[in-house]
Write a protein that binds this DNA or RNA. Structure first.
Lengths: 198, 198
DNA sequence: CACTTTAGCGGAGACAGTCTCCGTTTTATC
DNA sequence: GATAAAACGGAGACTGTCTCCGCTAAAGTG
């Protein structure tokens, strides 16, 4: 039933994505990053939309849930953490790699304090949400810990994710300036306590 | 300027607290306990008021904030934890006492899953709120840890509260039935990692 | 028991945040 | 330019928080 080939391709009848959509999406992300950093993860989404100069409907079309927005805002940092895992695993001894990565994790939380609630939600919410970013982090700690287990350096019965949850728990309260030391000490404790020999 | 003493006492002109106030307070607590346990710490307060058969105003007069209500609901358990601290400190070696208390803490979270968000808020919120309950928990872990430090069994540089925060962090996600084991393992890791000798 | 006093009640309603629906506008493509 | 589809945006429904204040009923008094 096809007509002569003067028409466009019948397959993939897609058109180029609209320019204004792309622009709005980026303005929203920009404002959201700033707002989350300034006022925490609970700022009003309508407010973000207003600051971005779009209607609420537009924001919700691009990011159906608060989690989706959070995830996108922090995707970049999460991907960097995932990349670090690959780097560490390739160049360091298992236990050192695990420790280094956990310390890097602390650094990230310290630098952009706001990543903590996001991660908290990522690790805490129903697994359906945050599939993408959550999986990146999960896989990272998982493969680092597994490698250390297989090499016999840490006990085989621990749940890798728990190490991370412990860190996130501590970072939940980004209180005084003494926090970073606290967190780094905790990494030390967790690593030491995870070793096999004892 | 006082008139002759035929009047009631000028000092402490207090009257007996009203019976209905006490009754309402208890009905609210009862419903709140149940609601928090069933649907988490974010249930609507107006809804709790409705279920308790009182107006929103009454609920808010008795408990000005959600935190105040949460605190009162869980005060009993918190006090039991504080009592356990005294008992353990009196009868066990420092390190054992610390471990035992942390395991008890896990048990409490396991039994009444809902205590976790409450504690999370208690430890996480501004220190002003939760003064009472928060201090009970803080003091408990603090004195247990300090005793173990002074006896030289655990490293002197750790922040006692961080141990607790780590536990709360892990308990944030009360996911599968495998959770309790996870948490107990974490206690083990934390204790082992906190010891001095290494 | 009648009477006064006032603690306590409770609901109407102001306010804020979430999220959706749908008429209008803008864009890509022809 | 004409057309169709994609995207916009804001009015508004809905839900939850919290307060104000006129009224109710319990406690105190003789």
């Amino acid at each position: 039933m096809q007509e002569p080939m003067t028409e466009k391709k019948p397959t993939t009848p897609y058109r180029k994505p609209r320019a204004d959509a792309q622009r709005n999406r980026e303005r929203i992300l920009e404002v959201a990053r700033e707002s989350f950093a300034r006022s925490g993860a609970n700022v009003s989404l309508d407010e973000i939309a207003r600051l971005a100069g779009v209607g609420p409907g537009t924001l919700y079309r691009h990011f159906p849930t608060r989690e989706a927005l959070l995830e996108t805002v922090y995707r970049e940092e999460v991907e960097r953490l995932a990349a670090a895992e690959r780097r560490f695993a390739a160049t360091m001894a298992p236990l050192d790699a695990l420790r280094a990565w956990m310390l890097l994790f602390v650094d990230y939380i310290e630098a952009k304090q706001i990543i903590a609630p996001a991660l908290n939600t990522m690790l805490g919410c129903s697994p359906k949400v945050f599939e993408e970013s959550g999986a990146l982090i999960t896989n990272a700690i998982d493969s680092l810990a597994r490698r250390a287990m297989e090499s016999g350096e840490i006990r085989a019965d621990l749940e890798p994710l728990d190490l991370l949850r412990a860190l996130v728990g501590v970072s939940n309260v980004v209180s005084g300036p003494g926090w970073p030391e606290s967190a780094r000490r905790l990494v030390d404790i967790l690593i030491t306590g995870s070793r096999t020999s004892g």
